[in-house]
Design a protein around this nucleic acid. Structure first.
Length: 646
RNA sequence: GCCCACGUAGCUCAGUCGGCAGAGCACACCCUUGGUAAGGGUGAGGUCGGGGGUUCAAGUCCCCUCGUGGGCUCCA
């Protein structure tokens, strides 16, 4: 017997293996009214009305209004798509792989004999899917003995399904199949009660995907779809995709002349154009100042180092596939650096250290190079050469907690100053294979946890998800259109201090092994700027804008006055340009708007006479004339505060 | 690397059935000298990513190659 606590209905006892469908019948037998239930959540797991319940606990019915119900919808749409493919291209030609749900929809990996899908096939498949939905096939669940299941799928030549049964489902587990009309699929579920319940969907793209994600396995064709209960939600999502396209940092980078990536130089290697370099320079300066303020010491290290260094650090053995190949100089091997750590370790070791000088915090905007497969490169987000805002903290055990707390505060303060205020924090603990003694892991993991708690943030634990050399915290930020980006990381390293035999002389006049913490706030400057551009849709705050004000003379006769103001503003430290082109004022304003320049200063006869500027802001339009000095004060204050206002 | 799509002027893109390579923006020059999101005219600008093939004829069809984009972890 099972004991189920069903929300709003209370405790009930049922036979083992009962389904929601049967529970509803029983409850209705008691005269209870239940409407619109399409599934349930059993102890946190989404199930459908056919899933046999085999454990006691909490059961909550869900309707289309519950977000969990999307899981059912999307899973079923994957099946409906598979059914459509079979009907279109022949049951025996279509071999199904896996068809799971994704964040906004679903996909199915399939192999279709004699058919290579193209985008033009998608509408055809969509039509067929709509037809199947209209047919309103009831969805049924069956459990089969292993042998029978294999026989069934062998008959249907579903080689991948058989592979799953044989290699992925543990012996004792029942094998469930779902049917809708003539379509049968090996599936764990959950599904909607019948195809007629399916909501709004759209097939959006095609891709290749290796069977089980392993190179060397056959490549299947993957069809991606998105799905929601209503057309309205689907449309909203499609609009979001449009919006994301508009904000694409690669597009903005080109339009605003910020950076370029060209085949002439090489994929994944960014060139910063003058305007992009301004942004980067501002960010780097602010970063340096803040680090000096918080007790870091800035260092610089070279881009290459001798083979032996990378052998000692372990990179040659464990990281080689991500490194640029070795080069030979005077019979010595050298590597371009994929990380800065070994150099910082050498700096630490440049002389003997006393416990009194700890903690030592070494910081560097270090440009590293990593080999990424050509297919994964993506604008500034995934590159082969990038600059880490790197730092290594070397400290004593009694300082660990305080240091971690300081790092986390620095991370949050910094990210907030760029307009990010929603975070996701992940704490990753010790994996099976790891170095370092138990006590170190405990001290380190504990200090990470305490630091997160002390800043009052919630976090998720990734049990066993730490690197082999130490536990870590990862911080993700949420951008203006809701996407999460991984930026900051704080990692303990128990490996390098051992490998490099780092030590300090303690109060007891003996050698002690220090703790080493590796951390970055932006992760990669390139990537962070990419995220910033997408977050602000290119409308950067004043302090980061490459051109902060455009001076717009109304006619040629006003150019001398415009230049006079330009000089004055430049002397005040503002980044300004004068638009001296022989164009009408309207055109100049339009172009400045398109370049997302925060201020437009229009000058004509009136302004020249009264020594003022007519200020137009990107956001609000014309805000009226003011003396030049007043404008300078205003702009400087906003820059100082890193404010988003204008 | 692998699958699919794409590659035409500096940029964004059109180019039908294989038949003289186009538009808008940007750029240059001329006219125009203006009051809060595109004034008008003229002009220059092309190995159609590269190589090979089919053809009387290739931007267009075929093969190879380079590059770009979307994917290739999220367990039936």
């Amino acid at each position: 017997m099972l004991k189920l606590n069903i929300n709003r209905f209370g405790e009930y006892e049922f036979e083992d293996g009962i389904t929601i469908k049967e529970i509803i019948q029983a409850l209705e037998g008691e005269g209870k009214k239940i409407k619109g239930v399409i599934g349930g959540v059993l102890n946190g797991k989404v199930i459908d009305i056919h899933t046999p319940i085999r454990e006691s606990g909490e059961l909550r019915f869900i309707t289309k209004k519950d977000p969990e119900s999307l899981e059912l919808l999307r899973h079923s749409l994957a099946h409906i798509m598979a059914q459509a493919l079979k009907e279109l291209y022949g049951d025996e030609n279509v071999h199904l792989g896996i068809g799971p749900t994704t964040e906004h929809g679903f996909y199915y990996d399939v192999e279709i004999e004699g058919k290579r899908l193209t985008e033009e096939d998608l509408p055809v498949i969509e039509e067929k899917m709509k037809e199947i939905i209209k047919r309103n096939c009831p969805v049924e669940r069956k459990e089969l003995p292993r042998e029978e299941a294999i026989e069934l799928f062998e008959k249907k030549r579903e080689i991948y399904k058989i592979d799953i049964i044989k290699h992925q489902i543990p012996g004792g587990e029942p094998i469930s199949v779902y049917t809708q009309c003539d379509f049968v699929d090996l599936c764990r579920g959950p599904h909607i009660p019948s195809t007629g319940e399916a909501g709004a969907f759209k097939l959006i793209s095609l891709a290749g995907a290796y069977w089980r994600g392993k190179e060397g396995n056959p490549m299947l064709q993957r069809i991606y779809g998105v799905a929601f209960w209503t057309e309205k939600e689907l449309k909203k999502y499609m609009n979001m995709l449009e919006e994301a396209k508009k904000r694409d940092h690669r597009k903005l980078g080109k339009e605003l002349e910020l950076f370029m990536i060209t085949d002439e130089v090489g994929g994944g290697l960014a060139l910063w154009l003058p305007k992009g370099a301004v942004i980067r320079n501002e960010i780097e300066n602010a970063w340096k100042q803040e680090h000096i303020k918080r007790g870091y010491q800035l260092v610089y290290t070279p881009h290459v180092g001798k083979e032996q260094l990378w052998k000692t650090s372990g990179h040659v053995d464990f990281y080689r596939e991500n490194m640029f190949p070795e080069m030979q100089i005077e019979d010595e091997g050298y590597f371009v650096k994929p990380m800065n750590c070994p150099f910082h370790v050498e700096i630490y070791k440049s002389r003997q250290r006393s416990y009194k000088e700890l903690p030592i915090r070494l910081a560097e905007l270090g440009t590293v190079y990593r080999y990424e497969r050509s297919g994964v490169l993506h604008g500034l987000m995934r590159v082969r050469g990038f600059t880490q805002d790197d730092a290594h903290i070397i400290c004593r055990e009694d300082q660990v907690e305080e240091e971690i707390k300081g790092v986390l505060e620095l991370i949050l303060d910094t990210l907030k100053s760029y307009g990010f205020d929603e975070f996701q924090i992940f704490l990753s603990t010790r994996p099976e294979k790891s170095v370092g003694d138990d006590k170190m892991w405990e001290v380190a993991t504990d200090s990470l946890r305490k630091a997160i708690e002390s800043v009052g943030l919630t976090y998720e634990i990734d049990e066993g998800g730490g690197a082999f050399y130490g536990p870590k915290i990862d911080v993700k930020i949420k951008d203006a259109i809701g996407r999460m980006w991984q930026c900051s990381t704080v990692q303990f390293d128990f490996n390098l201090p051992e490998r490099f035999d780092m030590y300090y002389i303690g109060e007891d006049n003996k050698r002690h092994r220090p703790y080493m913490i590796h951390r970055a706030i932006f992760g990669s400057i390139e990537r962070f700027i990419g995220v910033l551009l997408e977050h602000y849709a290119g409308q950067l705050p004043l302090w980061l804008s490459p051109v902060q004000a455009k001076i717009i003379p109304i006619a040629d006769t006003h150019i001398p006055y415009a230049k006079e103001i330009e000089t004055k503003l430049k002397e005040a430290g503002l980044r300004v340009e004068t638009d001296e082109r022989n164009e009408r004022m309207n055109k100049k304003i339009r172009d400045a708007e398109l370049q997302k320049i925060p201020y437009m200063l229009v000058v004509g006869d009136k302004e020249a006479e009264s020594k003022t500027v007519a200020v137009r802001t990107k956001k609000k339009g014309n805000i009226g004339a003011m003396p030049v000095d007043e404008f300078i004060q205003r702009a400087k204050k906003i820059i100082e505060e890193k404010s988003l206002e204008l």
